[in-house]
Computed example of a mutant assay.
Amino acid sequence: MKVLILGAGYGGLTVAHRLKEYLGEDIEITVVSKSRSIYENTIFPAILTNDVKVEDTVFDGLEVMRRKGNLFVEAEVKDVNLQSKEVKTSKGTFDYDYLVLALGGGYEENFNKISGHEHAFMHHPLSDFLKIKEKLASMDEINAVIGNYTGSPIEGPSYQLALIVRNEINRRGIKGKVTLVTQSPNGVFGMLPVKEISERANRLFEENGIELVKGDSIVEVRKDKVVTRNGKEIGSNFVSILPKLSVPSLLRETSIVNERGYVEVEFPSFRTKRFHDVFAIGDLAEGMIPARTARGAMIAGENVSSTLAKEIKGVEKPLYKQGIICMFHGGEVAGMLRFDVKDKPHVSLLVNPVFSKLKIMYSRMLVATGFNVPYHAAPFF
Score class of each variant (00 low, 15 high):
Gly331Trp: 11
Gly331His: 02
Glu332Asp: 13
Glu332Pro: 02
Val333Asn: 01
Val333Tyr: 03
Val333Leu: 07
Val333Trp: 10
Val333Met: 12
Val333Phe: 04
Val333Ile: 14
Ala334Tyr: 13
Ala334Met: 11
Ala334Cys: 08
Ala334Gln: 01
Gly335Trp: 01
Gly335Ser: 05
Gly335Ile: 01
Gly335Lys: 09
Gly335Arg: 02
Gly335Cys: 03
Met336Cys: 10
Met336Gly: 04
Met336Phe: 09
Met336Val: 15
Leu337Ser: 03
Arg338Asp: 05
Arg338Gln: 15
Arg338Asn: 06
Phe339Val: 01
Phe339Asp: 00
Asp340Ile: 13
Asp340Pro: 05
Val341His: 02
Val341Asn: 03
Val341Gln: 07
Val341Ile: 09
Lys342Asp: 15
Lys342Cys: 14
Asp343Gly: 09
Asp343Cys: 02
Lys344Gln: 07
Lys344His: 13
Lys344Tyr: 15
Pro345Asn: 05
Pro345Glu: 06
His346Cys: 07
His346Arg: 07
His346Leu: 08
His346Val: 10
Val347Glu: 05
Val347Lys: 01
Val347His: 06
Ser348Val: 05
Ser348Met: 01
Ser348Pro: 03
Ser348Thr: 06
Ser348Asn: 05
Leu349Phe: 14
Leu349His: 06
Leu349Met: 12
Leu349Ser: 10
Leu349Lys: 04
Leu350Cys: 08
Leu350Lys: 05
Val351Ser: 12
Asn352Gln: 05
Asn352Ala: 14
Asn352Asp: 14
Asn352Cys: 06
Pro353Lys: 12
Val354Lys: 15
Val354Gly: 02
Val354Tyr: 06
Phe355Trp: 10
Phe355Ala: 01
Phe355His: 00
Phe355Cys: 15
Ser356Met: 12
Lys357Leu: 15
Lys357Met: 09
Leu358Arg: 08
Ile360Tyr: 15
Ile360Val: 13
Met361Ala: 08
Met361Asn: 08
Met361His: 14
Met361Trp: 12
Tyr362Asp: 03
Tyr362Ala: 14
